[in-house]
């Protein structure tokens, strides 16, 4: 599974909490501090791990250099970094290739759903589509217009990082 399945805000929030704890803290401690059930934190942990922003080692969450670097950037810089990170994830790559090759940089939601069902039979396709759209939008990788239900590749980000 190489599609982040957590809201971006929760992943960034997790990195910020880790940063407050000098880059390393027990998962149970975070749960206690934020009065959050483990189940409510784990999606953010999994997504952050997938993006190599944190490492998990015997119950401890450890901020990686990539995670620290991401935090040090402003909003446009973060989007630019995430653009690279997200587009390097295996399943996202497959989806980008699908949109590129088959459909001239734009594809109907239905077609992408069929692709997801075929390539990832074990996941909820609609839910997966939503995660792809959300991370794709934030990282300026994909655009989605729910009026015409078309998803397309965004132009590469022009924003400056700091």
């Amino acid at each position: 599974m190489t599609i982040p399945r957590a809201q971006i805000g929760t992943v960034m929030g997790l990195l910020e909490v880790l940063h407050d704890f000098k880059g390393k803290v027990d998962l149970a401690k975070i749960s206690e501090e934020l009065r959050l059930e483990l189940d409510d934190i784990l999606p953010a942990v999994e997504a952050a791990k997938l993006l190599k922003l944190i490492q998990v080692s015997s119950g401890d969450l450890i901020l990686t250099n990539e995670g620290t670097a991401l935090l040090s950037k402003n909003i446009s810089g973060r989007k630019k970094e995430l653009n690279k990170m997200v587009s390097n994830l295996g399943e996202i790559k497959g989806i980008i290739d699908f949109i590129k090759k088959e459909h001239g940089n734009e594809v109907a939601k239905e077609d992408l759903l069929s692709f997801i069902r075929q390539e990832m039979p074990d996941v909820d396709a609609e839910q997966t589509f939503s995660w792809i759209v959300d991370w794709g939008r934030y990282s300026l990788l994909l655009r989605y217009d729910s009026n015409n239900q078309k998803i397309k590749l965004a132009k590469s980000p022009t924003t400056k990082s700091t």
Partner: peptide
Amino acid sequence: VRVIGLEGYEEAYPRELSGGM
């Protein structure tokens, strides 16, 4: 929209957004 980190979400409707967004 850009300053606030919503670049990329211009054509999204509220129902497509998380609470934070």
